[in-house]
């Protein structure tokens, strides 16, 4: 089975100096993929240029114009977390365009899986605001493109932070199911189980917050017990994954306790939720410990392709199974489901 790598993007650009969201993250992912020695099964594609229409489906014209101008005037910071440099706009365009290239490559081949190895990340970026290291919401650009082509799209977000941007962009869109597991409490402060979608798309958002220390088995339970029934009723045509590696136990930005092997298992779950081969695309989001990112990227791609690869043991026994079950109950209650 082929792996399509879209990119790499951002391995020598959008450099904020001493900041954890740094170019070397992309190299760590590419090194992890390289460790698998996929040979001719590895297919690299270059980004396409997103059109204005594709960008405006998920961001306001005012925000896009301001961000482009801000970068072209040298940039600065959007908030205490988020920097913009003179090449950030161009890099963000390539990152969004890498996602679109991955869709085209998969649609053309009809099999395999794709990994968009690009930064800056995107899932915190809202329609009219960048934040949390994110400028343009790349996964949202791709999801909206698939919807425009008549598809139903699952966005699965296992980054350790809640993807407030993606959730809010598709809040009222019944064609996009947004599912997130994330540490709670933690930045950005959204992602409670009773956030279940807007009036036009009730139930189209699934949030499972997890306590610090939660292990791989707990994340799996969240997907198997809370998300999977919703996903199978939704019947997605495509599965896009906000693939952060910051839920790894070595990550400096959060306190979940996953190992690289757990990401491999999560990738297998993503493949299982897709209706056919050639319908899963991973987008790099967070992940700030470079050795952990490298091992996790390798394990994730191995999981995608069904290859055996393990550098760490899967983790289990951490706290949070009760929280997962309570989240399922809270979600149903907020949707008015009685049982």
């Amino acid at each position: 089975m082929p792996l399509i790598v879209a990119g790499p993007v951002g391995q020598d650009a959008h450099d904020g100096g001493p900041h954890p969201e740094r170019p070397a993250r992309v190299n760590a992912v590419m090194d992890g993929i390289g460790d698998l020695r996929l040979g001719t099964d590895l297919v690299q594609v270059a980004p396409v240029r997103p059109t204005g229409e594709q960008l405006r489906r998920v961001h306001t014209p005012v925000y896009l114009d301001e961000l482009e101008l801000f970068a072209h005037h040298g940039g600065g910071s959007l908030d205490p977390d988020t920097f913009v440099t003179d090449d950030s706009w161009e890099t963000a365009m390539q990152a969004a365009g890498a996602g679109l290239a991955a869709l085209d490559a998969l649609a053309e081949r009809g099999d395999g899986s794709a990994f968009v190895v690009a930064r800056p990340p995107g899932h915190h970026a809202e329609r009219e605001r960048g934040m949390g290291f994110c400028l343009v919401n790349s996964i949202a650009v791709s999801a909206a493109e698939l919807v425009a082509r008549g598809n139903r799209v699952l966005v699965l977000d296992w980054d350790v932070h809640h993807g407030n941007g993606t959730q809010s962009i598709f809040w009222d869109d019944p064609d996009v199911l947004y599912v997130s597991t994330h540490q709670w409490p933690l930045y950005p402060g959204t992602g409670r189980p009773d956030e279940t979608g807007g009036a036009d798309a009730p139930g189209s958002t699934v949030n499972v917050p997890l306590p610090p220390g939660a292990t791989g088995d707990v994340v799996r339970a969240a997907l198997d017990e809370v998300a999977a029934p919703v996903v199978s009723a939704f019947a997605p045509d495509w599965v896009l994954v906000s693939c952060g590696f910051d839920a790894h136990r070595a990550d400096p930005l959060a306190e979940l306790a996953l190992s690289s092997a757990d990401f491999g298992a999560l990738a297998e779950v993503a493949v299982g939720l897709a209706p056919a081969s050639g319908r899963v695309v991973l987008f790099l989001e967070g992940g700030y410990d470079l050795p952990a990112v490298r091992r996790s990227a390798a394990a994730t791609v191995a999981g995608l392709l069904g290859d055996p690869y393990r550098s760490e043991e899967p983790t289990m026994g951490g706290p949070g199974l009760d929280v997962v079950r309570a989240a399922g109950v809270l979600r149903e209650r907020s949707l008015g489901v009685t049982r």
């Binding site: 954890p20 205490p80 977390d81 949390g132 933690l186 930045y187 930005l253």
Partner: peptide
């Protein structure tokens, strides 16, 4: 509100 960097 504690941001990403401050948390770390």
């Amino acid at each position: 509100a504690v941001g990403l960097l401050e948390h770390a």
